[in-house]
Write a protein that binds this DNA or RNA. Structure first.
Length: 431
RNA sequence: UGGGGUGUAGCUCAACUGGCAGAGCGCCCGGCUGUUAACCGGGAGGUUGCAGGUUCGAAUCCUGCCGCCCCAGCCA
């Protein structure tokens, strides 16, 4: 009998086939038994009538347990009563890998227990759906930039220099050269690549040793960072809204089944089209103050403030030109208001908050050096970065998109730890 | 690092004012020919997070420690 993927069973109605997969659940009565099987391509109900099979096969079917790996041979039938419309009437089966006392039962479990069994939890319907949507978003990221002439450049994960601020860095010994740090961002490197290719992006894991314990933080997360030569802050925001709209559109277009499995209300996602609303930081402060907040100009926006601003919007919201003091040294000063920099955050709706941070970069050597010194950083470490401003400096902008935050938002899940296969958090390194 | 919560069977949770430690799921045995987290009957399964204290008696009250969850800060 030919081996067939469950997703292709519709083409084999009336034929004998063999399906290999894992047992999801079993049900049986005295003379008929059912097993739901998954093989990664889909889910299949397999039926075994006692009087149509050998005693041995019947006995073996009765002893199937959750997540046992098996191969079932039988006849493909169309049947309204089967989930998916097709089922397999089994004539024989073989247990390829038994499964005894599978920990994750069909009833509810706590998050602690589930993450302790993350390696098994990945098999459940909901987790499969999330992983497929993440996969779609990753593919869409590459497609979006490729279609627009960007070059994908990988930034280093180990670095002697540092990205933004020390203190949040994971470090390791690096031979005779002292400490190396795990990348917090690929941005500085990708700025160098932008001078080579014009439009570039990197997409990879980044690491922050922040002792954060919120639904929006991981110590290891994936970030996509484009960098565009000759783009100013406004063009940067236009790229961001086109990019996010594309990613959301792809998920809506190609992952309907998965979004349905997650019971995601897609109405808010369908509204994610350019242009997105824009609000300056100063206007945001004024609006928050008018709403009763005691926030002062100069302070960074807190989670509550962001939620307050974003909930008035259907679409993602840009907040731009933050105070220089609360932002990184590489952001370009706003020539119209030297208290601020030419940056923006992009806040996702529905309470998901910041998923993008971007800015126009400081392209003047002396101003950049002053900012580095002003923040108490060691200019020697940034020698190569300063070189970019000495040899053909250019207006350029870029941003960083947090993949897990984006996936969590699209999926409508409450915590980003489910948006990555093996989340790394302050208290979790297993599995 | 702060604030709040929680810890009882493999899992999810009950247990009144301090008075015999229980249910559902999962597992084992039996029944049922169309089940959809199947159903029905029976059974096994406990150092109540750890250490100490109060009490005739502690899952319950007190002290300390540990784990986890949520929120905040930091950020993507």
């Amino acid at each position: 009998m030919p081996f067939v993927d469950i997703r292709d069973l519709g083409r084999h109605v009336g034929q004998g086939v063999t399906v290999r997969g894992w047992v999801v659940t079993t049900r049986s009565s005295g003379k008929i038994a059912f097993a739901v099987i998954r093989d990664g391509s889909g889910y299949l109900q397999s039926v075994l009538p006692k009087n149509e099979v050998s005693e041995e096969t019947w006995t073996r079917f009765q002893t199937l347990t959750q997540e046992a790996c098996l191969s079932v041979t039988g006849l493909v039938r169309e049947d309204q009563r089967a989930p998916g419309g097709f089922e397999l009437t089994a004539s024989s089966l073989e247990v390829l890998g038994p499964s005894v006392d599978y920990p994750i039962t069909p009833k509810e479990h706590g998050t602690s227990f589930l993450f302790e069994h993350r390696h098994l939890w990945l098999r459940s319907r909901r987790q499969v759906a999330i992983a497929r949507i993440r996969h779609e978003v990753c593919q869409a990221i590459h497609d979006f930039f490729n279609e627009r002439g960007f070059v994908h450049v990988d930034s280093p994960i180990l670095s002697g220099a540092i990205g933004e601020e020390a203190g949040n860095l994971f470090s390791t010994e690096y031979f005779d050269l002292g400490k190396a740090y795990l990348a917090q961002t690929g941005q500085l490197y990708i700025e160098a690549a932008a001078a080579a290719h014009g439009k570039v992006y990197c997409f990879g894991p980044t690491f922050r040793a922040e002792k954060s314990k919120t639904r929006r933080h991981l110590t290891e997360f994936w970030m996509c960072e484009p960098e565009v030569a000759f783009a100013d802050s406004n063009e940067n925001m236009r790229l961001q809204e086109a990019f996010l709209s594309y990613l959301v559109g792809r998920a809506l277009d190609r992952r309907k089944e998965e979004l349905k499995e997650l019971e995601r209300d897609t109405t808010p996602l369908e509204q994610v089209t350019p242009p997105f609303p824009r609000m300056s930081y100063s206007d945001a402060i004024a609006q928050l103050q008018a709403g009763g907040s005691d926030i002062q100009w100069g302070r960074d926006l807190g989670a509550d403030d962001e939620t307050e601003l974003a909930k008035q919007q259907q679409k993602p919201l840009f907040v731009f030109n933050y105070p220089k003091e609360v932002k990184a040294f590489y952001m370009k000063e706003n020539p119209d208001d030297l208290r601020t920099v030419l940056n923006n955050d992009c806040l996702a709706p529905e309470g998901y908050g910041e998923i993008i941070g971007g800015s126009q970069r400081e392209d003047d050597h002396d101003r950049l050096l002053a900012r580095i010194l002003g923040q108490g950083l060691d200019p020697a470490t940034y020698g190569w970065y300063l070189d970019l401003r000495k040899y053909g400096t250019f207006v350029h902008s870029g941003f960083g998109l947090g993949l897990e935050r984006t996936v969590a938002w699209i999926c409508g899940i409450s915590h980003i730890r489910e948006a990555i296969a093996f989340p790394r958090q302050i208290h979790r390194l297993y599995p």
